[in-house]
Amino acid sequence: MGLDLSPFAEVVGPASSGPVWIAGQQSRLAAPSSIRRVTAPSGIYDLQPDEMTVVCGAGTSIDELQDSLRAVGQYVNLPRGDSGSGSVGGALAIGRSDIYRLGRGAIRDTLLQARLINHDGQVVSAGGPTVKNVSGFDVCRLLVGSFGQLGFLGEVILRTRPIPQSSRWFMMSEAGPEIIEAILRRIYRPASVLWDGHKVWFCIEGNSRDCDETIQKLSIDLEVPTEIAGPPKLDNYPFRQSVPPAELAEMVHDHAQQGPEPLVVEAGVGIVHRQTPAEPQATERTIELLHQRMLQQFNPTGRLNPGVSLTTGSMA
């Protein structure tokens, strides 16, 4: 990687230079007005389709990155922001996967290497440039979902994937838990299965003829799925909750009994899309202690993105 990060390091400044906030496109988390803001470099520096990697500044727009990758038949497993494209660094810092996690995997596996600015304004490199690497401890996994509190991402190397030959969505209108179970068991690696307790929407990616045959087989003893243009809109479900996927069926059932608020769940994954926030979970004491120690090591003065809660992702 060749991007000169020293100007970025300079604006972040040394430990003595006070609180600082990294702002991307603010499509996921708004920057507080009272704290000095910095912005990560942007731009695509190296795109190697035969390596399935791309090097870019953390401030790069996700839409711009996906457009460039689309031209070579690839994509990167990073979700757009809640309100617009969002930046690469923002998606990684928040660390939340999108509705395709069941088939495409978690966002955390996308980051191969990062160059970041630490709490003292120094450039730190983590991970490695190749798709396979076990050289030292995996700092990159820790950075994804750290809300910028362990360091500000400057430049990243991301793993890319081939765009599937086809990506088709289907819907069934009468879907109880047994239908969800049948879909999870009988469809080969579905990309996404969304369920609101009544309807199920699912996505199959890959060869279109395989997809046709899968639907035919499913239709033998189940309702014939209707092909639809895309996933259901989840704009009315701004809150998310994470639960073990084995608990989803009971949760959806109980929820339907208790009140009118609808839920959409990611079957096989465990994400619940809600209209109201869920009760906050208690953090286990040892986990809290490990968080404290990690922050003490990486952000001892607490100057990087101060005030944001690692556990809720919101300002304290």
Partner: peptide, 18 residues
């Protein structure tokens, strides 16, 4: 955890390969 987005840092990911 079995849930997809356990609270806080990915300590699981940090532990693997340590």
């Amino acid at each position: 955890g079995e849930e997809p987005e356990p609270i806080g840092l990915d300590l699981r990911g940090a532990f693997i390969g340590s």
